[in-house]
Design a protein around this nucleic acid. Structure first.
Length: 594
DNA sequence: ACGTTAATAT
DNA sequence: CATATTAACG
């Protein structure tokens, strides 16, 4: 029923998109409304976040997308974002005059599809519908069958279960025993007990989103399987399932954090101010979610918890294992900047890590609900099955940006097994590169089926998804405009300085674009790290996620480039990293409080 | 029972 | 090979 469906898709889809605009500042709201109207969207405005939430709760199908200011008196925009991510699956775009990367990170990690810096330009609004399409696609694919089950509770409705739709299900019936001979009976039977082997849980994007949302709410420190399970409220899902996913998620966060720190180093070295990387990530949608959606990368997944999660998490993660203490050297710097962002898709993402995105409904499926056992998802493929977190994130976010292009593996030293060593470096990269746009994104690798199709398409623009991991990939594509990520990125870079641009490019490509001219760094030096870094990208599927981290990174300052370079190079071995520190600041926002 | 972590299965 | 499940430990 949503508008778009009604009109069949093709058409002039974006026209009439139902947008709920929320901003406590009447002027900004009016401006926003005007711009949105110019885009031919159906706009509803409210100056209160609480009112917005109320409207959304009253009729979940009344809007296609929410665009909200971050700073509002009655309710923090991030909180609104989080609620929306958990209760309804609508894409949320954050809006703020403050382009602080930390905030951007937070938005993305919490599931925002996009983060726009205030004076908003109409060009940025013209493409917002892609987030709607993306999400929809995802869910659509799995129609959920509704058979009756009841599913879950309240708000959300989904339980794990539904599977994809596929057909499925029943297939089995038929078989009945034809002959019996076998005594074996094999089974089938079912019933009960025992034996039924439970279908494997597939962490669909949605599921991941929920997971991320729950983690964010709890705060990483308190995010333990049991609690997460309770918050997710998905039936059929067990504590063990959550524990397993949490395990993976934590690994993901670690990766991210390390990557972040690297970035930080780079940034510091270069003197970049905010890291360009961050700017805007894409989206996550959903909530975040760790959703990992994506592995594929959409970049942005981000962890929503972002701070919460992130920082805390990272801290936690690191510390234990690592003995490394991260301390910040440069205190002066105050805040660190987050660098990355991860997220791919969005939320559901922390999820959103993980676009999970795209949608497919099928995605969901996963769970075993008892009910259906579903048919196995297998077919459905939709799920993220294989995708990795990164993909999920990307999907979720949609655009996402993954920030971390690099992995810093070294950063945390040896202690951590994960990172240590080269492993990280080599990860695979999917790469995407070659292709142009969409494809890139989709590299099939992960998502095949449904995802790919779905996602990619959107308008053609979706490239974002690069699953590849990397941002790089996506960026390259340049055209990516769709999400804007790129474009934004570009913009931001511009502001900073030329240098940055070049640098970025370099990063982006992985290699050197820098060469062109830049002078600043020697390419060689740069490249090394870059290449190394870039490799891993794939990985993080979570990114998506939603949860992303924001770790901050920091700034540290190396006295000289050489130092930096050296450090990077060596980091593998030793501890190296002493400088970084994460900050936990933001957490409060989401905190538990909810 | 619960959370982690590591091993094992798919 | 990555993800999910199962076992094992504190």
């Amino acid at each position: 029923m949503t508008v778009e469906e009604i009109r069949g898709d093709g058409d002039n889809f974006p026209v009439g998109l139902r947008v709920l605009a929320v901003d406590d500042d009447p002027i900004c709201l009016k401006l926003l409304e005007t711009l949105l109207r110019k885009c031919q969207y159906h706009v509803t405005t409210t100056s209160q976040a609480r009112m917005a939430l109320k409207m959304l709760r009253e009729n979940k199908d009344r809007f296609d997308l929410v665009i909200s200011d971050v700073h509002m008196p009655d309710m923090d925009g991030f909180k609104l974002l989080e609620y929306v991510g958990l209760e309804m699956d609508l894409p949320v775009i954050m809006l703020s005059a403050n382009g602080d990367p930390k905030l951007v990170m937070k938005g993305v990690t919490h599931g925002a599809c996009d983060y726009l810096v205030k004076p908003v330009r109409i060009e940025e609004l013209r493409n917002i519908w892609q987030h709607v399409l993306r999400r929809k696609k995802c869910d659509n694919k799995n129609p959920k069958k509704s058979s009756g089950q009841v599913k879950s509770h309240q708000a959300n409705g989904e339980g794990l279960g539904s599977p994809t739709g596929n057909a499925d299900q029943n297939g089995k019936f038929n078989r009945k025993r034809k002959e019996d001979e076998d005594e074996s009976e094999d089974n089938e039977n079912d019933e009960d007990p025992s034996t039924q082997k439970k279908p494997r849980v597939v962490w669909s994007i949605e599921l991941h989103r929920k997971f991320v949302g729950a983690v964010n709410q709890l705060g990483i420190e308190k995010a333990v399987p049991k609690r997460i399970l309770d918050l997710m409220n998905v039936d059929g899902l067990t504590r063990e399932n959550v524990a397993s996913h949490l395990q993976k998620y934590r690994l993901y966060l670690k990766r991210i954090s390390s990557a972040a720190s690297q970035q930080a180093h780079m940034a510091a070295a270069f003197g970049v101010k905010d890291s360009p990387f961050m700017h805007h990530m894409g989206s996550l949608d959903g909530l975040g979610d760790f959703r990992t959606l994506s592995s594929a990368r959409l970049p942005n997944v981000v962890l929503s918890p972002y701070t919460t999660t992130t920082n805390a998490m990272l801290g936690r993660l690191n510390s234990p294992s690592a003995n490394v203490s991260l301390r910040n050297l440069s205190p002066s710097v105050g805040p660190l900047q987050p660098s990355q962002a991860q997220n791919l898709s969005s939320s559901i993402a922390s999820l959103n890590k993980m676009n999970f995105g795209t949608q497919n409904t099928s995605l969901f499926q996963g769970i075993p609900s008892h009910l259906e056992q579903n048919a196995t998802n297998n077919n459905s493929k939709g799920i993220l099955g294989t995708s990795n977190f990164n993909a999920i994130d990307e999907l979720l976010n949609g655009a996402s940006f993954n920030p971390e292009p690099f992995d810093a593996s070294g950063a945390f030293g040896s202690s951590n097994p994960l990172l240590s060593s080269t492993e990280s470096f080599h990860s695979q990269l999917p790469l995407v590169n070659g292709s142009r746009r969409n494809d890139a994104s989709l590299n099939g690798a992960y998502l095949n089926t449904d995802f790919s199709s779905g996602v990619g398409l959107v308008g053609g623009e979706v490239h974002n998804m690069n699953y590849g991991n990397n941002i790089f990939g996506s960026l390259n594509s340049s055209n990516i405009s769709g999400n804007g990520i790129v474009s934004r990125l570009g913009r931001s870079l511009g502001q900073n300085n030329a240098i940055s641009n070049q640098r970025m490019d370099g990063f982006v490509n992985g290699r050197s674009s820098v060469s062109g001219g830049s002078n600043l760094l020697q390419q060689n030096e740069i490249e090394k790290p870059v290449n190394e870094l870039r490799q891993r990208s794939n990985e993080d599927s979570f990114l998506l996620e939603e949860t992303r981290l924001n770790a901050g990174f920091v700034p540290q300052s190396y006295d000289s480039l050489d130092e930096l370079v050296n450090a990077m190079i060596k980091r593998e071995q030793d501890e190296t990293v002493s400088n970084c520190e994460f900050q936990f600041d933001d957490d409060y926002a989401f905190g538990n409080g909810i």
